[in-house]
């Protein structure tokens, strides 16, 4: 028996919106410690890693480890049927063929059940090594989303250069070029608005806008985003999910031919 309940479906709705652009299918691995998803996008350029800890749920029970292959499009459609304030419960038997989503309104007068067929998937797990990053930047997630959107108008890729002075995003294309510099905030009274840079060595890396613009769909999950970068390794773009977990996006850089 697997059962996981969240008092408000809003978190799960936002999580689905944050992955649906990148993933068509994904395996949800459920264990005593929580729910984990690790999946590459179709082009195998980026990797999504989602972790929801069992102690972050209002109720969590997982008698046996389960790997449930889910169609993300269908799951997104089902979550859209829930109101943000509805309680959501995920339920499956051991060795399940399907999973049930149960939405209950706050006043308990409406109860909706949606059953979704599970899919068989080959489980290919990538081992992500522990990495000490040269630059770790924390910045407002809305600002990051805005910069990605704005610079995407100029080119297909954004170059991120990080130094002690700050972080610079730039894009160049046929019509011109653009760059946005953010300095580290002097006083971080408002934690949510702070730009914090932890730099060991300066880095300069280039990434495809397409993927960055998919990652920023996670913006509603968290006021701050953490960008971890080292030369010649994938960018990690991380959003905390309340007190329950996090979503990390890994993106392979573009390199000189």
């Amino acid at each position: 028996m697997f059962e996981a309940r969240l008092a408000q479906s809003a978190i799960l709705k936002k999580v689905l919106e944050a992955v649906k652009d990148l993933l068509t299918e994904a395996t949800f691995e459920c264990s005593d410690s929580g729910i984990q998803v690790q999946a590459m996008d179709n082009a195998h350029v980026s990797l999504v890693s989602l972790n929801l800890r069992s102690d972050g749920f209002d109720k969590y029970r997982c008698d046996r480890n389960l790997s449930m292959g889910m169609n993300i499009g269908t799951m997104t459609k089902i979550l859209r049927c829930a109101s943000s304030e509805d309680t959501v419960t995920l339920r499956a038997v051991d060795s399940p063929d399907n999973i049930i989503f149960i939405f209950e309104s706050q006043n308990k007068e409406k109860l909706a059940e949606y059953e979704m067929k599970l899919i068989n998937m080959d489980l290919e797990h990538l081992g992500i090594p522990e990495t000490m990053y040269s630059c770790v930047v924390k910045m407002p997630s809305q600002e990051f989303a805005r910069i990605c959107r704005d610079l995407s108008q100029f080119g297909e890729a954004i170059t991120i250069a990080c130094s002690k002075e700050g972080i610079k995003f730039s894009a160049a294309g046929d019509y011109g070029n653009a760059n946005v510099k953010l300095a580290q905030t002097a006083d971080s009274d408002k934690e949510e608005e702070a730009v914090l840079i932890d730099m060991q060595e300066p880095v300069k890396l280039t990434f495809a806008c397409r993927y960055l613009n998919s990652f920023v769909k996670a913006t509603p999950l968290c006021a701050q985003v953490k960008l971890s970068m080292s030369s010649d390794v994938p960018l990690v773009c991380e959003y905390q999910i309340g007190e329950i977990g996090h979503i990390r996006y890994y993106l392979a850089p573009k390199i000189d031919d």
Binding site: A43, H125, L126, G127, P129, T206, A208, P234, L251, K254
Partner: peptide
């Protein structure tokens, strides 16, 4: 010009 790397080339596949 730059070419796009794949993510699996950085991480071990299990």
């Amino acid at each position: 010009s730059k070419s796009q790397m794949g993510i699996a080339s950085y991480f071990k596949v299990h």
